[in-house]
């Protein structure tokens, strides 16, 4: 069970949150010229790392706002939270 630091409400129990999967997946520009393989990559392919994962969460039963979180998928350590649109903190920064 995670204790998650909502950027607006502070530390709350995991059961108040919803999980939104991998963060920073940008919708590709020029959809009309995109190949099927590039569509597949955007829609389906995921990093799914063993280690630091940048992911989206929503405080569903609280302020109902979305934010990003960096979490280690092997240790379950929460490494930090940051707002949507902000670059990720730490060595993963600038990952887009």
């Amino acid at each position: 069970m995670f204790l998650i630091q909502c950027p607006w409400c502070g530390p709350r129990d995991e059961t108040e949150f919803g999980y939104g999967g991998e963060a920073h997946i940008a919708r590709p520009a020029g959809p009309e010229t995109l190949s099927d393989a590039d569509w597949a990559d955007y829609v389906f392919m995921r990093k799914n790392p063993k280690g630091v994962h940048l992911e989206r969460w929503v405080h569903r039963h609280g302020c109902r706002r979305w934010f990003n979180m960096a979490r280690d998928t092997y240790t379950h350590q929460v490494l930090g939270v940051y707002q949507m649109g902000e670059p990720p903190p730490g060595p993963e920064g600038g990952d887009g």
């Binding site: 069970m1 995670f2 919803g18 999980y19 999967g21 992911e55 998928t73 240790t75 379950h76």
Partner: peptide, 13 residues
């Protein structure tokens, strides 16, 4: 469990 993980454990709820 909703989140991705390699920890071979999940949450109690």
């Amino acid at each position: 469990d909703a989140y991705t993980s390699y920890a071979q454990r999940g949450s109690f709820h």
